[in-house]
């Protein structure tokens, strides 16, 4: 990519200034509402597992699994993309959105086969989350070990 010329800079600035902006207040409210509701549902699932005798920490894994199942199912039924159109980050950021980001490409590339389609493409979008999440946790661990051990 070369640097933009003066003429391109001028046009880009002019066009960007004129383009419609996302309805910020509406979008943030929708994200807050839907994100909050998904987390409230998560709390109910968490409380259920705690009521079975688990402590809050032990109940975290099963809660995540249930929420993933829910996100995956709604994706399979073709509902999650519509929730996403409305809620934006509100349905992307919760773990149900993580499930959506895995199931959506898995479904999409089914027609290219189970190995090179579903298998290879499943982590198209969620892959970076695992790569950078795991690496960051590893680095944090390394510092922790250097400091404390």
């Amino acid at each position: 990519m070369g640097k933009l010329t003066r003429e391109q800079e001028v046009y880009k600035r002019w066009a960007n200034a004129r383009k419609p902006k996302p309805p910020l207040l509406r979008n943030v409210l929708a994200a807050f509402l839907v994100g909050g509701l998904i987390c409230t549902l998560g709390q109910a699932v968490l409380n259920y597992f705690i009521s079975l005798g688990m402590n809050a920490k032990e109940a975290g894994g099963p809660t995540a699994a249930v929420m993933i199942l829910l996100g995956a199912l709604l994706t399979g039924l073709g509902v999650y993309d519509r929730i996403g159109r409305f809620a934006g980050a509100g349905s992307v950021i919760p773990i149900t959105g993580f499930a959506n980001s895995i199931v959506a490409p898995a479904l999409e590339f089914k027609r290219e086969g189970y190995v090179m389609g579903v298998g290879a493409r499943m982590f198209n979008i969620a892959g970076p989350v695992l790569v950078y999440g795991m690496t960051t946790a590893w680095l944090v661990g390394l510092f922790y070990w250097l400091i404390h051990k």
Partner: peptide, 13 residues
């Protein structure tokens, strides 16, 4: 763009 079932919002442009 994205897989069709991905729940993303589209900007007004």
């Amino acid at each position: 763009r994205y897989p069709t079932e991905l729940g993303v919002q589209k900007p007004p442009t």
